[in-house]
């Protein structure tokens, strides 16, 4: 049963990834990317990370996708249509390099041994993630808020009209 769920989710993910890479129209690419997001949220649920599945749906599937669609609507359509598709020669050149870099990593993952701790988590997922986030990782959490504020100011400055 577990492998059945794995097969369904990973097949869905692979089909949407190929759609994201090779579709021509940018709106279709964003729809395929939304499908990738939903598949990854399902995989997070399967792996027992409920908090991240919810955050994936809220942050990616709502905020980021809507942002992409808004930017596409502000750009005139005929200018977008002039640069669609892929570079064919670069694609042919990139495939062997990526295959060569995939094979050793996959070999190391398959043959290596992982350290498995015997620590059993008794409380729920969201509880344990929240406790770790607000005790050990409190300072990175505050730094993340500063990063978001800086990105907001930078986006306002970049999107402003020049006088």
């Amino acid at each position: 049963m577990e492998w059945l769920i794995f097969g369904f989710l990973s097949l869905w993910l692979l089909v949407s990834v190929f759609g994201t890479l090779f579709l021509k129209n940018p709106v279709h690419v964003i729809l395929a990317f939304l499908s990738v997001i939903l598949a990854i949220a399902g995989i997070f649920l399967h792996l027992g990370a409920e908090l991240l599945a919810g955050l994936q749906l809220i942050v990616y599937a709502v905020a980021i996708i809507v942002f992409y669609v808004l930017v596409i609507t502000t750009i005139p359509w005929e200018k977008v249509k002039k640069f669609e598709g892929i570079y064919k020669r670069e694609a042919l050149l990139a495939v062997p390099f990526l295959l060569i870099s995939f094979l050793p990593i996959a070999y190391m993952v398959l043959e290596g041994k992982f350290a498995v701790s015997q620590k059993v988590i008794t409380e729920g997922n969201i509880q344990s993630v929240g406790k770790t986030l607000f005790t050990n990782y409190l300072f990175p959490f505050e730094v993340a808020s500063v990063i978001l504020l800086t990105a907001m100011i930078g986006a306002i400055l970049l999107g402003r009209k020049e006088e």
Partner: peptide, 15 residues
């Protein structure tokens, strides 16, 4: 979770 935060910032700046 931090990676998701950085992704949101990256999308704002990139777009």
């Amino acid at each position: 979770l931090f990676v998701i935060t950085v992704a949101a910032a990256e999308v704002a700046i990139g777009l």
